[in-house]
């Protein structure tokens, strides 16, 4: 009787393990399926975008981004030049006088 019980318990435990293994395989299979789908969708999308780029359709989307970037850069450039122009105009009066004197000397015959 006792032996029968042990055998019965062993069988149940074996089934439990088998079930767990199956459940685990299910989890992995589900993940793999999801992963394959993710990659497939990405590849599909990439392919579509490439074709659109090749046929120059949807180019506006890229150009818009590039334009935005370029506008930001242009603002930086404008600011930099404006600062340099201000620095140039800020020459002190005494240096203007010095430079003018250089001209005056050149005007007079030696």
């Amino acid at each position: 009787m006792e032996m029968k019980n042990i055998l019965s318990l062993g069988g149940r435990l074996k089934r439990l393990l088998a079930k767990a293994e199956e459940e685990g395989r299910g989890i992995i299979a589900e993940a793999q399926e999801k992963a394959d789908e993710t990659v497939r969708v990405a590849k599909d999308e990439a392919e579509k975008r490439l074709v659109r780029a090749q046929y120059r359709t949807g180019l506006d989307e890229f150009l818009k981004d590039a334009e935005e970037e370029a506008k930001k850069e242009a603002k930086r450039v404008e600011k930099e030049y404006a600062k340099r122009a201000e620095d140039i105009k800020a020459v002190p009066e005494d240096r203007i006088r010095e430079a003018a004197e250089l001209l005056v000397k050149e005007v007079m015959p030696k």
Binding site: A66, E67, E73, K75, E78
Partner: peptide, 18 residues
Amino acid sequence: ELRAVHDRIVGRAQLEGR
């Protein structure tokens, strides 16, 4: 095309700056 957009916008700013 992207470079052309960049050059047009940034180039104009540089020209104005100069």
